[in-house]
C-alpha cells in the first residue's frame, strides 16, 4: 500500500511538473553561462551517444566513462548514454551532426569514423565534428592455429606472395572496415600484393571457430580476443600492430610487426567527440575532464579489466592524429579501389 501511495505521489508530482514546465525550456545550448571569461560548466544532463547497439565496444566505453565520471566525482551532472544504432555508426553521427553547437551531445568513436565515410556509407566524417579527447587504444593481432606451419609474419607473408589463393584471412567485419584494413596495412608494408588477399567476413561470431577447425588460415582481430586461446595453446599470434611490445602476462610474448622488420602499425583508438562548431570553452572543459578521467585510478581499473591501453590526446593533437590516419587509410582503400 505504501508503495502505491508513493507511486501515486510521484505521478502527481510528475503531472504537476509537466504542466508547469512545458515550453519553458529552449532548444540547444543557448542557456549556457558562457560569458567572455572562457569558463563553461554544464548546467543540465549530458548525453553521450554510442553509435551502436548495447553491449559493443563503443557502448561499453561510453557507459564506463559515464559511470566513472560520476563515480570519481569528476563531473556532477548526470550523464546518460544513448544508443543510436545503424549504418555502422552513420545513424548516430548524423544525429550528433544535427546538434550543431550543443555542448551536451557527445559521442564515442574509433577508426570506423574514418573508415565508414571513406567507404561511402556516411555523409559525416571526423572533420565534421569537434574532437574532444582520445582516451584509450587497442591493437590488432593476427593469429593462426597453433599447429600452423608459420611461426612469424614473414613466413606467412612469403607464402602469401607465392600462392595467395591458398590462404584465407577471416575477420568479423566487411571488406574495407577495420579487421580487413588492419591486415591489409601490415601486409602491404611487407610487400604482399594486397589485391590478391582472400578475405572472408564472419559477422555471426564464427570467425574464431572457423580458424580453429581449419576452414580459414588467419584471423585478424583485436589483441584481447586472442589471449585466452593462446594461453590454452589453441592458437598462436604471429604479430601485433602496436609500436612496442604490449605489457602484461602473455601479451608481452606477442611480437610486434615492427620488430619483425615490417614498418607499420595500426591503432584502434577510441575517444570522444562533440557536435560541429562546439564552443571553445566547452571543448576546454571536456579536455580537462577527460584528462582527469584518464588519470583516475577508477578508470585505470576499467582499462585493466578490458585490456585497453591508455592513450590520451587533447583536442588539437587528436585532430592532427585523425587527419594523418585518414590519409593513410585512404591510400590503402585507393589501392584496393574501394574508396568512394
Amino acid at each position: 500500500m505504501k508503495k502505491r501511495l508513493a507511486l501515486f505521489a510521484l505521478i502527481l508530482l510528475m503531472v504537476v511538473t509537466t504542466a508547469c514546465s512545458s515550453g519553458s525550456k529552449n532548444a540547444g545550448g543557448s542557456s549556457d553561462d558562457k560569458g567572455d571569461s572562457g569558463e563553461w560548466k554544464p548546467d543540465k544532463p549530458i548525453e553521450i551517444v554510442a553509435p551502436s547497439g548495447a553491449g559493443g565496444g563503443w557502448d561499453t566505453t561510453a557507459r564506463m566513462a559515464a559511470k566513472m565520471f560520476n563515480e570519481a566525482g569528476i563531473i556532477d551532472q548526470k550523464i546518460g548514454v544513448v544508443n543510436k544504432e545503424g549504418g555502422g555508426g552513420s545513424v548516430g553521427w548524423a544525429y550528433v551532426a544535427s546538434k550543431e553547437g550543443s555542448p551536451y551531445n557527445l559521442f564515442v568513436s574509433s577508426p570506423p569514423l574514418l573508415l565508414v565515410p571513406l567507404n561511402g556509407q556516411s555523409k559525416y566524417d571526423h572533420e565534421d565534428f569537434t574532437p574532444l579527447a582520445n582516451v584509450i587504444a587497442d591493437y590488432a593481432a593476427f593469429a593462426v592455429k597453433a599447429d600452423a606451419k608459420w611461426d612469424n609474419l614473414n613466413e606467412l607473408f612469403d607464402d602469401m606472395k607465392k600462392d595467395p589463393s591458398s590462404i584465407t584471412v577471416v575477420g568479423a567485419s566487411a571488406p574495407g572496415s577495420m579487421d580487413h584494413i588492419q591486415f591489409i596495412k601490415i601486409a602491404k608494408a611487407a610487400g604482399v600484393d594486397i589485391t590478391k588477399i582472400k578475405y572472408v567476413s564472419d559477422q555471426d561470431g564464427g570467425a574464431l571457430t572457423s580458424l580453429l577447425n581449419g576452414s580459414v588460415d588467419v584471423y585478424s582481430t583485436g589483441v584481447a580476443e586472442t589471449v585466452e586461446q593462446v594461453k590454452a595453446g589453441k592458437i598462436k599470434v604471429l604479430g601485433v600492430t602496436s609500436e612496442e611490445r604490449l605489457e602484461g602476462d602473455t601479451l608481452s610474448d606477442f611480437p610486434t610487426a615492427k620488430e619483425q622488420g615490417i614498418d607499420a602499425t595500426f591503432v584502434n583508438w577510441r575517444g570522444f567527440f562533440g557536435p560541429p562548431k562546439m564552443d571553445k570553452a566547452a571543448v576546454k572543459y571536456y579536455e580537462e575532464k577527460f584528462k582527469e578521467l584518464s588519470d583516475s585510478k577508477e578508470f585505470a581499473e576499467v582499462r585493466e579489466k578490458y585490456g585497453w591501453d591508455e592513450m590520451y590526446m587533447d583536442s588539437e593533437e587528436y585532430k592532427k592524429f585523425l587527419d594523418e590516419q585518414k590519409e593513410e587509410i585512404k591510400g590503402l582503400l585507393d589501392d584496393l579501389g574501394l574508396a568512394k
Binding site: 514546465s21 512545458s22 546518460g80
Partner: peptide, 16 residues
C-alpha cells in the same frame, strides 16, 4: 527505461 535500464527514451519538450 530511463532510470532502471539506462535506455533514454525521447524527452521532447518535457524537462525529464
Amino acid at each position: 527505461f530511463n532510470d532502471f535500464l539506462q535506455v533514454s527514451l525521447p524527452t521532447g519538450i518535457l524537462p525529464f
